[in-house]
Design a protein around this nucleic acid. Structure first.
Lengths: 207, 207
DNA sequence: ATAGGGAACCTATCGCTGATAGGCAACATG
DNA sequence: CATGTTGCCTATCAGCGATAGGTTCCCTAT
């Protein structure tokens, strides 16, 4: 009974694929994301290099799977946290969590938020996961009363900037993570200020 | 008299080196920074691939020269502009110029502000140019009354975030460049706010 | 029960990459 | 004028991702 499933082969295939993916992350941490060698990777899962092509049609396809994997981790990460209560405090926690998420795994940050691999572009199917995340972020902002595009652009720059500085200057640390609260206050104070001075238009131009 | 200088050879050497460097930027724009081929590069300057090693001891050494070149461009760029007058308005212009500088050349931005090449680390000598720039930025901030480390960290995240979003989402455009003024106001308003509420300490903690 | 077909994996090999070895000619200097 | 250095060459190396083609094994259909 255990041996003859209808798609026993498919299960095994997916399991091996997942094993390769896990080892790929491991090698990426050891040698760098762009420096993964298919021969090393094959060795680490008991295969020869060409056999990897049974599971991934190219190296870029492997990167695509890692990209998707990373965004799934991010979606799970934010889904596990509850951002209830005051939407403004929730936004601050959300921002801090994002920076922490990047700081926790610099290679994953590079994969998701920097274009560090020469020819790599995520596939449309995979990119949908990224869009899913940005939709979550958009709703967090909307709950805090931020809906105009310019303010959204600024918030995305804030998040990316904090994460980048953290990863680049103190990987694994919390120096920029800790600034998330203050930065969110700063951001929301600016939103309030602009609403006060020009309530008619969504984004006012000054300076 | 023209042919037999004491270091005529050195001049020729430096000229050829500069020519190679210029072609390297060209190829980087065409194929991507990490995808430069030494054979292509050699072809484009009338040499065979191993002859490049006369001018650069390795490919990473070539990247180091490009890194230095890019920071020299940045230092020249900010030196050519005058940031006189009101230091707060100057800071806003400075920030806008930085984002514009990145938007103007995405490959150069990648080289200077992202770690996109696998094994590359700038040499100490080259990195001094980067430190020189950060000193300029520090002085711009100091002139506007910003001296505490946390605020400097935030400003660097702002600059990097705006530049990154601009380069990643709309290379060559001005969508995030235009936000520099508003973001600087937001930043300085936060500085003022914190000075008002807790003038004793340099950085207050809230939220 | 077994023949057919596809999945999984292999060896061998391709073209490309950056780097090295060793040789030759041009030039600057004692 | 001899000598050492610079500039550039050809030939070659090991490593890379990718492909071709063969073999074995399992699942399914007759």
């Amino acid at each position: 009974m255990t041996t003859a499933g209808p798609d026993r082969r498919k299960v095994r295939h997916e399991a091996k694929r997942a094993e390769i993916l896990a080892q790929a992350w491991l090698l990426a941490h050891r040698d760098g994301l762009a420096a993964i060698s298919l021969r090393d990777l094959a060795d680490s899962v008991g295969l020869r290099q060409p056999s990897l092509y049974v599971y991934f049609e190219s190296k870029l396809n492997l990167y695509d799977a890692m990209f998707a994997d990373g965004y799934r981790q991010l979606l799970t990460f934010v889904a596990e946290r509850s951002y209830g209560g005051d939407p403004r405090r929730a936004l601050a926690r959300f921002l801090g969590d994002l920076v922490q998420f990047s700081s926790d795994d610099i290679v994953r940050h590079q994969m998701l938020f920097q274009r560090t691999i020469p020819g790599f572009e995520p596939s449309a199917e995979t990119f949908a996961l990224a869009l899913e995340f940005y939709e979550v972020a958009r709703q967090m902002l909307a709950a805090a009363g931020v809906t105009d595009q310019r303010s959204i652009d600024i918030f995305s720059a804030l998040a990316n900037g904090l994460a980048h500085q953290q990863v680049a200057n103190e990987p694994g640390g919390r120096r920029w993570v800790r600034l998330a609260g203050r930065v969110t206050e700063m951001f929301l104070a600016d939103i309030d200020q602009r609403r006060r001075t020009s309530p008619a238009r969504k984004g006012s131009r000054r300076l």
